[in-house]
Design a protein around this nucleic acid. Structure first.
Lengths: 209, 209
DNA sequence: CCGTATCCAATAAGATACTG
DNA sequence: CAGTATCTTATTGGATACGG
């Protein structure tokens, strides 16, 4: 294993999660445990052996735990530890910073975790009151998120008791939030007026150059 | 060049500054332009060819600019662009997060930039009033920093008009601030009482486990 | 001395096939 | 499904040599 010979906290951080894929694996674990195959599917281009190795390293460093879901599922999953979850601000700052890049290509594939996390990062509560409980359905996987002045809380789970529910592909939702696509690119159930307001609350920072 | 096939902002951020050494190069540029040899010296273990390549890539991506210092110096230096400097919060969040790691080894070498940046990251203004202009002298290189309730501003430059000036090796200062070493491990000129209070304002977060 | 360029050996990553 | 094993390719690091 290759390490930096540097006492700087930043350098140590890179020793822990600086290898290729590591931060993206952590991203995928941010909203709860995931299976190996799901991780592989949502990390386009990673190979099984590299994913295995990254998970083992992250586990050895105390960032990830390999556990078994309670019955009746009883499948093996990987989940972030408490400390692993505390890396979320790092991921968000990096994402926020990169949003200014003129080289960013929004046509590449994007996972549901990425979209959920981007909303946590980019949500700008308006001067006037705004609060909403929003459901998201991406095929098999659903999330519920609370958007408040104080920030955004996201949970994986059924989209119940929501002000409105958005259904579509992650890329379609991203297109509506960040790409100026009309809201009818996705399916909206519930309070349509609130949903229309909602999708305007994710301003992108000005691009560099 | 190896890239992630992922529209996520975080993944794009890693495409920009995720390669080995890139973030540490940016760290070294955070307080002003640096020469090639200085960078090489303060990045222990980097080889000249890798440093050349990283600098060229960062320049191509708009994070670094290769310029010449005004006469009489007239030497070639590398400096972070405005956008490059905006990556500072990413570096600080990663450093702050890694500070909880039980695997951190403070006996490794540490650069003066690292110590200055760690102070920006870890400074915790006390409930009671505190403000100080502090000079730092590390051999050839000096810094001046303003510690305020609102945060810490750091500049490279002569240590003049300071409440006190600290002189020593970066590792010695780090030992005093974070390692519980007595303040007389470093040289203090000026308001000693204020300096004694100052060195208590850098609490480390609790370690994991 | 400063910075690049070149060569070589050691690692890490990627592709693919395969097993319990 | 959840990985291993194997092979190939790319990147890194170290040494050294070269040009301004």
């Amino acid at each position: 294993m290759r390490r930096y010979d540097d006492a700087c906290g930043l350098a140590h951080g890179l020793d822990l999660i600086g290898e290729r894929w590591a931060l993206l694996v952590m991203r995928e674990l941010m909203f709860g445990p995931r299976r190996f195959s799901g991780l592989k599917r949502d990390l386009p281009g990673i190979s099984a052996n590299v994913l295995t190795q990254r998970l083992a390293e992250l586990e050895a460093r105390g960032l990830v735990r390999k556990t078994r879901l309670p019955p009746p599922a009883s499948v093996q999953v990987y989940e972030a530890t408490k400390w692993g979850l505390e890396a979320a601000p790092v991921l968000r700052e990096l994402g926020r910073w990169a949003a200014r890049s003129p080289l960013h290509d929004p046509t590449l594939p994007i996972s549901h975790v990425s979209v959920m996390m981007s909303m946590q990062t980019m949500f700008a509560p308006p001067p006037s009151e705004f609060a909403a409980r929003v459901g998201f359905r991406f095929g098999e996987t659903s999330y519920v998120a609370d958007f408040r002045e104080s920030g955004v809380e996201v949970e994986r789970g059924e989209a119940t008791h929501c002000d409105f529910v958005l259904t579509g592909q992650p890329a379609e939702l991203a297109g509506v939030l960040y790409g100026g696509a009309p809201i009818d690119a996705i399916k909206v159930e519930g309070d349509l007026a609130l949903a229309r307001r909602f999708v305007t609350l994710f301003p992108l920072p000005p691009k560099v150059d």
